[in-house]
């Protein structure tokens, strides 16, 4: 797919090549000899990436499918073939299905929340200003930088940081004020009913900044006249957002949805580093990637872990197909 994407990129970029040069290229490709040269030229460029892709992407896939059908425990040089036994066991693995449930919930909530918040902020920073023209609210430049901060921090640092923020005693940033008011501290990470939502909060916090910047860029490319025309017609901020900004930004929002969907299926480090029992307490925050890691590198059940990986693979492909179906929508030209 990456190759296809690249080919499409080429085609897209072609349209920006100056016309004269394009015409020259076309003439050049007329003769047979140059056809051959061109094929060799393209093959030369493609050979290395395709080879790397085969070795580092396709072959590990193939190997994982094979390992999934063995009882390999990681240290033996000769794994035994056990057929579909791992997949049978997986069906009855309650913890794994809990993890799948969490990923599914994240898949719905993470994109929705992040995009809603990011759109709101981006709108404030770019369009919603008080002054006559189309501009952001006061201090927009400063906020834009601040919103991007979480993106700059390494995931592990974010996780450790939030461990402290969520601490259940007086050293916890959130619980200290609560306890000063004489309230019971909240077990953000220790209460199994709350922990998942704490994780979701951190994931959203971390993702919003990037999408604020992405949507800001998207909004900057919308012609000013559209906003001005809407303003003159008497549109308020709400109408400006829902009737003008959102439809014109829909392409960018779609990209955001898909990437956040990927992120939701791929959550690992935050959960692994931040939570007790790596996905606890009591499996209340675990996700598929954490179960794969646990089975492979803690239980040394590489065969079974690969089977989980294969299942994750099919979930991801299913999501990809679904995302493509849903994203078919007419664009507004401007």
């Amino acid at each position: 797919m990456a190759i296809r994407a690249r080919a499409v990129t080429d085609r897209k970029q072609m349209s920006y090549v100056p016309l004269g040069f394009r015409a020259a290229l076309g003439r050049f490709a007329m003769t047979h000899r140059t056809d051959y040269t061109r094929a060799r030229f393209i093959a030369g460029f493609l050979a290395v990436p395709v080879l790397l892709y085969l070795i580092y992407v396709i072959s590990p896939y193939a190997q994982a499918f094979y390992i999934a059908m063995t009882n390999w425990r990681g240290v033996s040089a000769t794994p035994q073939f056990v057929g579909l036994e791992n997949f049978q066991r997986l069906l009855g693995d309650g913890v794994f299905w809990t993890a799948v449930g969490h990923n599914a919930l994240l898949l719905v909530l993470l994109p929705l929340l992040t995009i809603a918040i990011a759109l709101f902020f981006a709108f404030l920073l770019n369009v919603a200003g008080e002054s006559g023209g189309v501009s952001g609210i006061w201090g927009a430049r400063f906020y834009r930088v601040v919103f991007f901060f979480p993106q700059v921090l390494a995931v592990a640092i974010v996780a450790v940081l939030f461990q402290q923020v969520f601490r259940p005693d007086k050293s916890g940033m959130l619980n200290a004020p609560l306890m000063a008011l004489g309230l019971e501290p909240v077990g953000f990470l220790s209460n199994p009913d709350v922990a998942f939502w704490s994780i979701l909060g951190v994931l959203v916090w971390q993702a919003v900044g990037f999408y604020v910047v992405l949507f800001s860029a998207g909004m900057a490319s919308i012609p000013r006249e559209m906003f001005e025309a809407a303003r003159i017609d008497g549109a308020g901020r709400v109408q400006l957002f829902f009737q003008v900004t959102l439809p014109l930004l829909w392409d960018t929002v779609q990209v955001g949805l898909i990437y956040l969907g990927i992120a939701a299926l791929d959550v690992f480090a935050i959960v692994w580093v931040m939570t007790a029992e790596h996905g606890g307490p009591d499996h209340s925050t675990t996700v598929m990637a954490a179960e794969i890691y646990r089975n492979a590198f803690q239980y040394f059940r590489f065969g079974y872990a690969s089977a989980l990986g294969v299942v994750l693979f099919f979930f991801t492909v299913a999501f990809a197909v679904l995302a493509m179906r849903l994203s078919r929508r007419d664009r507004i030209e401007f």
């Binding site: 896939y61 190997q63 390992i67 898909i258 990986g309 492909v317």
Partner: peptide
């Protein structure tokens, strides 16, 4: 072409992280 590009890029992006998870387990040297 732009929509196609977005889709293809998204799909490529989808597959790569999953590959990362799996490629961590390589078969043993016989």
């Amino acid at each position: 072409s732009r929509r196609e590009l977005l889709r293809s890029a998204a799909l490529a992006g989808l597959l790569l992280p999953a590959a990362g998870t799996l490629s961590a387990c390589a078969t043993p040297a016989g």
